[in-house]
Simulated scan of single mutants.
Amino acid sequence: MNQEGFLSNINTILNQVVLGTPLYKWALALVVLLFFLLLKNLFSAIIVKSIRTVVSRTKTSIDDKLLLMIESPLRFLFVVIGLWLALDIINLRADILQHFVRSLFIIMVFWIFYNGINVFTDDIYKFSQKFGKELYKEIGSFLIKATKAFIVTIGFLAILQEWGINVTALIASLGIGGLAIALAAKDTAANFFGGLTILADKSLKIGEWVKVGSVEGIVEDLGMRTTKIRTFEKSLITVPNQYIANNPIENFSRRNVRRIKMTIGLVYDTPGETMKKILKDIKEMLENHPGIAKDQTMLVFFDKFNDSSLDIFIYTFTNTADWIEYMAIKEDINLKIMEIVEKNGSSFAYPSQSIYIEKVPEKLTFFDDSRNSTEH
């Protein structure tokens, strides 16, 4: 085949029409798109890197944060321009092309605002401290999530408006469907206002040990709709804010003492004087113990005559709410009570029964296997 014939075949192939567009235009559109993708990578590797070096030398951090806001959207801009030119080359209808490109620009703009929330997260938390330092993390997290949801919603509505959809008329025309959506969103609204109620009441915050209904654990996140609680089995439970707002909350982290309540049983042959001495020694030990809260209720009493023990009731509080410290104090008290009981010559009782026979018959009759009786 000569050169003219080869070129003729190439020309024929390139002029083949695919989906109403010659093949050479498809190839040119692909080349243009790949070229702008290459420019995007060069922009990231050279220009952005150079700008980052410059802003890192300034005293303020605002320029660094602004660069982080626009860096990803600017890279996306190269993709938008490449798609725009590529679609124009393949003769896509002008109105669709314009709407598509404008939609991408809208996404890019709202992307910058969304990045701004992530970049200025620390500043939002500092701002939320004005509403109270105790719950600034929860308030800041709530503001961040609410603002992100607002940005995404407005961006979505802007894209609908760009494509000629009248958002106001669309909502008004939903009719029964809108009512159904409103009813479906009822729980979402209730959870939202439940979250606001939790923040207003300051009933819990991140890091606290709480119990709501049957759910008990450490609060990990307080969101607009739900609160996440990590149980002591390390499973994560997501609780609707509405449920938390409408149920009693037991907040263990906000107590400064923890209760010790126990009943110990001594053997029945413990003399009365020994019992009095044991009660006195236990009470003195608790009053002098460094881990016991002296301003709280303290009870040490001979409580009752149980079936197999003489019961002593002990009721007091530790001066800490920390679980590990509480267990250490409780262990020390248990050991000291053992020492007191042993020192006074008594011992702890265990469940038992004694059977007393007033008189044993002189003759007992036993039956053997052959059912013949024998007297002894």
Results as ranks from 00 to 15, higher is better:
Asn91Trp: 13
Phe76His: 11
Thr60Cys: 07
Trp84His: 09
Gly82Ala: 10
Phe36Asn: 00
Ser103Glu: 06
Leu42Gly: 03
Ile89Asp: 05
Gln98Asn: 13
Phe76Ile: 10
Leu33Gln: 13
Ser103Val: 07
Val48Leu: 14
Arg52Gln: 13
Val48Thr: 15
Phe76Met: 13
Ser103Ile: 06
Leu67Gly: 04
Arg75His: 08
Ala94Lys: 13
Ile62Ala: 15
Ser103Ala: 12
Ile90Ser: 04
Ile51Cys: 07
Leu67Gln: 03
Phe76Leu: 07
Phe43Pro: 01
Ile46Met: 05
Lys49Tyr: 06
Leu28Ile: 14
Asn41Gln: 14
His99Ser: 08
Leu68Gly: 09
Leu42Asn: 06
Lys59Ile: 14
Arg75Asp: 05
Ile90Ala: 07
Asn91Asp: 12
Leu30Val: 09
Val32Leu: 10
Leu30Phe: 15
Gly82Ile: 01
His99Asn: 10
Glu71Phe: 00
Phe36Gly: 00
Val32Glu: 08
Gln98Arg: 10
Thr60Met: 11
Ala94Cys: 06
Lys59Pro: 08
Phe43Arg: 00
Ile81Asn: 01
Ser56Thr: 11
Leu67Lys: 04
Leu77Thr: 04
Asn41Asp: 12
Gly82Gln: 11
Asp64Asn: 14
Ala27Val: 15
Ser44Asp: 15
Phe43Trp: 11
Thr53Pro: 04
Ile62Glu: 14
Leu97Met: 12
Ile81Cys: 03
Leu74Pro: 01
Phe35Met: 07
His99Thr: 02
Lys65Thr: 10
Ser56Val: 07
Ile62Thr: 15
Leu87Asp: 15
Glu71Lys: 06
Ser44Leu: 13
